[in-house]
Design a protein around this nucleic acid. Structure first.
Lengths: 232, 232
DNA sequence: GTTATACACTGATATAGATCAGTTTATCAA
DNA sequence: TTGATAAACTGATCTATATCAGTGTATAAC
């Protein structure tokens, strides 16, 4: 049985957000489809700028993006988002008209955009749909809590182990994967300096926790990484 | 006009959560009232234990509580909650049956408890109500994002300034207030050591940013505190 | 009123991880 | 193929803040 206090790693496999649209009626689906646009973004492009007018709710159909709060001198990455997830839902609240965060791509990505007023209308009229959105929001909240804990309470090795497990389990969904980001991106993601990231990755490699060759990483010892994630 | 990038302080005056119950029909209100219990807690008591079975949604009618993730050696305080706010909403998601966080009181408190299955039923049948809950969840998310940013990106003086502004604006809703918590509690809240809290409070006092006598604190220079919160 | 305990406060020291100042190795364009 | 730029990597130093080891001061308990 799972321990309720356990937080290693700070992420878990989420439900696919696509299924929330399954709860719409035929009419509603037609309505959404008629008011939907697909947009392609290149690697490194900004999709949403924090503080800008929140006109649409996005759905990532392809690619990989980061969601972050802008700060000087460094940004805070709230989470990274793989395909089939909604983006921008937290902007839906009364009195607010702007996006809480920025969104940028790690790789070429495609998003589907639905007008926010149409989205709100669906929420008001279809309570099954609203219930599903509450589900998604709360699942996201759990994810952010985990990251908050990870970055504030764990030290460098624990954070590095955590992010490696997240990348393997939630993002690339494979034991062996090729990063489409730099060491500096990993540094942003862990809240460490890129020098520290490089040093710790080397230590993990020397200790046979991972195999690493440039951008290719393979997790060898999940158990020990999880222990490191939990206790340091 | 407000700058979308501004995050000082990490909190803002929220809507009162009580109003979500105004959206219920007479029948629904009777139903909720019939299935509601009031419970009193003493200072320092635990109301919710992280990982325990999430049987109820709570509403804080009186007192002051902290919501936190348990960790060794230290807990992470997600937020502190003044009266007229809902507690436990993020536990509402499919497949989850446990509370994501622990809740404990700073002072004697009273909570009203509604069975979670009754709450979920209201969400499924009353979409106005569901919409309001989405509002509350998203407002909360904005608050947590702000705290996440504060604790990970600001240094000690900025964090201290931030928490003082939060306490004044969101919690005590007064320029001058008497803390019902210790310096160690402030340390938990800022993610600093109690020694650092004490030193920084003294510096703020010496710089005439605040007046302080034991647990009484009066904010004297909001503007400079806000600048410190933003830039250090 | 006296003892005990928790809290507030202070100065000295330790340390995790950042920053700096490079070198080496990729990557990409012409 | 060459030159230019970005990324990866390494060792030395620095610094913000924790930790330690106390002293003083409330508050509560008897």
């Amino acid at each position: 049985m799972e321990n309720g206090n356990s937080r290693a790693p700070s992420c878990f496999v989420e439900n696919q957000h696509v299924s929330c649209f399954d709860l719409l009626t035929e009419d509603e689906t037609r309505f959404v489809d008629a008011n939907k646009v697909e947009v392609n973004y290149k690697k490194g492009e900004t999709i949403i700028k924090q503080g800008s007018f929140a006109s649409h709710i996005l759905f990532l159909t392809n690619g990989l993006v980061k969601i972050f709060l802008e700060g000087k001198p460094k940004d805070l990455i709230l989470k990274i988002v793989p395909p089939n997830h909604m983006i921008g839902l937290p902007a839906i609240y009364e009195g607010n008209t702007t996006f809480l965060y920025s969104v940028a791509t790690y790789s070429d990505s495609t998003v589907s955009m639905v007008d926010i007023s149409i989205f709100k209308q669906l929420l008001r009229t279809n309570s099954q749909f609203a219930m599903k959105i509450i589900n998604i929001l709360n699942e996201d909240t759990a994810l952010i809590y985990g990251r908050f804990f990870c970055i504030t309470m764990k030290q460098s090795h624990g954070r590095m182990a955590d992010i490696l497990l997240c990348l393997s389990q939630r993002i690339y969904k494979a034991k062996k994967f090729t990063l489409n980001m730099t060491r500096a991106d990993l540094a942003d993601l862990t809240g460490l300096s890129s020098e520290s990231v490089i040093r710790i990755l080397k230590e993990f490699k020397d200790a046979s926790l991972i195999i690493m060759d440039g951008k290719m990483i393979e997790i060898v010892d999940f158990d020990r990484l999880e222990k490191i994630s939990q206790f340091s």
